[in-house]
Simulated scan of single mutants.
Amino acid sequence: MKTYYSKNRPVLKNCPICGKLYADAGSGACQKCYDAYRNYEEEIRNFVEANPNCTAGDIVKKTGAPLAIASKMIQSGQFAMSGKIAYPCSRCGKLINTGVYCSSCQQAVQQATANANRLAQEARRKYLTGKKKSEKESGLNIIKLLRGKK
Score class of each variant (00 low, 15 high):
24 D>T: 05
61 K>N: 05
35 D>V: 08
125 R>D: 02
68 A>G: 05
66 P>R: 09
140 L>W: 01
113 T>P: 00
141 N>E: 14
77 G>I: 06
145 L>C: 06
150 K>Y: 06
48 V>D: 04
66 P>I: 08
113 T>F: 00
142 I>P: 01
71 S>V: 12
147 R>S: 00
120 A>E: 14
123 A>R: 04
106 Q>R: 13
15 C>I: 10
70 A>V: 11
81 M>L: 09
89 C>V: 06
68 A>W: 10
24 D>I: 07
147 R>I: 00
93 G>D: 07
102 C>P: 06
115 N>W: 00
28 G>H: 10
89 C>A: 10
110 Q>K: 15
102 C>F: 07
2 K>H: 12
130 G>Q: 01
53 N>A: 05
126 K>H: 00
90 S>V: 03
23 A>K: 14
97 N>P: 01
144 K>V: 00
63 T>A: 07
104 S>Q: 13
95 L>Y: 09
55 T>M: 02
140 L>A: 12
117 N>R: 15
39 N>R: 13
9 R>F: 10
47 F>V: 06
135 E>Q: 11
105 C>T: 04
120 A>I: 15
102 C>N: 09
150 K>I: 05
13 K>I: 09
33 C>G: 04
31 Q>T: 06
127 Y>L: 11
114 A>V: 05
26 G>T: 04
4 Y>K: 15
16 P>I: 11
4 Y>C: 07
134 S>L: 03
29 A>C: 07
27 S>A: 10
28 G>F: 07
34 Y>C: 03
